[in-house]
């Protein structure tokens, strides 16, 4: 999946990343907004994504699928941020009662389920269902076997359904 095994020079890396930014910044920004739900935080994460990419490209070769690679970095940043927000979220004073409004699934429930999954499973689900990558693309991006990626993807969906059903039944 790597074109060149030798890292490029600093100037070349910067020029390459600048070109990727001009090409994918809008798509990655909307991907971040979809996952987070906040444009301001998405803009912050967009800057952080390319900062991490610049640091990573100094030590590794250029990826074959830069969009998937950048989306993976952005997705991991989103999951980390959602976990921090969930860790410092306020607790309600009283438990919620079953109601019609609570039965309606919301985007926040999906984010909560993503947070409760482990990092690799959440990353797989995001790349498949948000970015639209295929298992083979993910396998190429992760340098793993396609069969393994498929099994992990099925397992991640199974756990996500369990978590999501449990969230809806509360």
């Amino acid at each position: 999946m790597v074109v060149d095994s030798v890292p490029l020079a600093e100037a070349a890396v910067r020029e390459c990343l600048a070109a990727w930014f001009d090409q994918y910044n809008l798509a990655i920004f909307r991907y971040l907004v979809r996952l987070i739900g906040d444009e301001e935080q998405a803009a912050d994460l967009l800057q952080e994504t390319f900062t991490k990419a610049l640091v990573a490209l100094r030590t590794q070769a250029l990826p074959n699928n830069p969009y998937a690679w950048l989306c993976r970095i952005a997705g991991n940043l989103v999951i980390d941020m959602l976990r921090r927000k969930r860790r410092w979220s306020w607790l309600p004073f009283q438990t919620s009662t079953p109601s019609h409004e609570h039965a309606i699934a919301t985007a926040q429930d999906v984010r909560d389920c993503l947070v409760r999954l482990n990092q690799r499973e959440a990353e797989l689900l995001v790349m498949v269902h948000c970015v639209g990558l295929s298992p083979s693309e993910i396998a190429e991006l992760l340098s793993e076997n396609v069969s393994t990626v498929r099994v992990r993807l099925h397992r991640a969906r199974h756990r996500f359904r369990d978590l999501y059903t449990g969230e809806s039944e509360l």
Partner: peptide
Amino acid sequence: SFALLVQSDARPPIATVAAIHAQI
């Protein structure tokens, strides 16, 4: 379930784009 995560048509702020580009 992931369809609940609504697709957004938002665009990043111009200042942010310029800042990131200059940073790169």
